[in-house]
Amino acid sequence: MGKGQSDAAIIDDPELWVDHYGDFLYRFALSRIKDPSVAEDLVQETFLAALRGRENFKGHSAGRTWLVAILKHKLVDYIRKKIREPSSDKIEVLTDQTDPDFNEQGEWQLRPSRWAVNPGRIYEQKEFLDVLYRCLAGVPERLAEAFMMREMEGLSTAEICKALDITATNSWVMLYRARMSLRRCLEDSWLGAEH
């Protein structure tokens, strides 16, 4: 940035957003989807959501990080609509009754494979990230929402409980189901998994 203004001051003045954050958000959107006009639309939707939720920006993260978190929600919404994955809660119900991962004794039915990723350098694995976004778009909406609040926005479970009006136990179950659903989807879709 380097224009002598604090992040909080820039967030306070939406007229500065395009010049300060526009290009970064645009590049970020283009790293996940290829269409420049869609990327521009998503940046616009991000700014609009940020404008409406400015009072939620508490300054505990950088302004850019906050905007990127909003953009990630927009990207997942866009991908969800595009691939028309059923975003009902069917999967949620399914995991209650017949868990595809475990047998009745609670042993792995579909054994986790070894993944060729280094979590410390995961940002270099573009293919992994692409698949992660597609998988996230297929996770039931409410689970995906809890997951994104936790892992993309870094909210505590207490904050998630308040936002979604759920108990702490519910939030842990929802986050578990979201992670398992993503893990399974990545295992099925990502070529880096060694079966």
Partner: peptide
């Protein structure tokens, strides 16, 4: 796997 998903997110 959970760690990798967190790191990527």
């Amino acid at each position: 796997h959970f760690k990798a998903i967190r790191a990527a997110s």
